[in-house]
């Protein structure tokens, strides 16, 4: 019970902070707005005609997955920042399990990323993307899975970065290529071999494809848009996510004390 109280406390701290931080809420919408509003609409106008599916909806679902994954992963990296600013020390001297600290943090950042998704949905309404809102509803449990997966990715990255400077410099390089490798706004059915390998190794690929495989399930576009079956995507996310989480947490806890 003790650790449960701590997990809830740590998680809700992130939500409280988000609600207060209007700049962060706005900033979190800038990327999706550019990706969907600028990149999506211009590509839809110029090359979308020949694809056989609505490109804007394709990008929209991709951006939802990417936003969840990136936001939770990035939020976890902020634990390194907390450690530098010494706020994390307040958590680390308290008599709670180190696993509870990380789990609370993942849960908090997951909630934060879900709040941000509401903004992305509003954006979709404003631009009037032809979306199947019923199919969108079926995505809800999978949004949670993708956020947790992003959190696990954040933990493994954080456990291997010693300080905030390294985190700020390296993290974008680990994330940015994945936008393209995962096919957030580019079809990745056919790729040259080296890129294909990199694409299938990128964790975000399975997050993006999971959402699309659910959203397009049973539609005529399914084969053109989706790479793997939902079951395969889920299995990869479950196995890789668990590995990231277990190894990452173990390493983080060890490095924390054995400096």
């Amino acid at each position: 019970m003790h650790n449960l109280n701590a997990i809830i406390t740590i998680a809700f701290r992130d939500v409280t902070k988000l609600v207060r931080d209007r700049t962060r809420i706005l900033a979190s919408l800038i990327f999706p707005a550019i990706f969907i509003g600028v990149l999506g609409t211009s590509l839809q106008q110029n090359i979308g005609e020949n694809l056989g599916y609505n490109f804007l909806a394709f990008v929209f679902i991709g951006v939802i997955a990417q936003t969840l994954f990136q936001s939770t992963a990035g939020g976890l990296i902020s634990l390194v920042e907390d450690r530098q600013n010494d706020f994390a020390q307040e958590m680390f001297v308290s008599p709670i399990s180190r696993y509870a600290i990380l789990f609370g943090k993942i849960l908090g950042e997951t909630m934060v990323s879900l709040v941000q998704i509401l903004g992305v949905l509003v954006l979709g309404l404003v631009i009037q993307i032809p979306l199947d809102w019923g199919a969108l509803l079926t995505l809800v449990p999978f949004l949670l899975i993708i956020s947790l997966f992003g959190g696990a990715f954040g933990v493994i990255v954080m456990a291997n970065l010693s300080d905030q400077r390294a985190a700020n410099q390296i993290f974008p390089f680990l994330l940015f290529p994945q936008f393209f490798l995962a096919g957030v706004f580019n079809p990745i059915q056919d790729l040259p071999l080296p890129i294909l390998i990199a694409s299938r190794l990128s964790p975000m690929t399975y997050a993006v494809d999971l959402l699309r495989s659910i959203y397009y399930y049973g539609t005529p576009e399914y084969d053109k848009v989706v790479l793997f079956s939902p079951w395969l995507n889920l299995s990869v996310i479950a196995v890789v996510g668990t590995l990231f989480l277990v190894i990452g947490t173990w390493r983080f806890v060890k490095l924390e004390r054995e400096r």
Binding site: A6, K17, D21, F87, E90
Partner: peptide, 20 residues
């Protein structure tokens, strides 16, 4: 080691919750 974005009371509450 205070959270600058929270209020003084929230910092105390956070601590009290962590220590159950």
């Amino acid at each position: 080691s205070l959270d600058r974005n929270l209020t003084a009371e929230e910092n105390i509450r956070f601590h009290s919750n962590l220590y159950d």
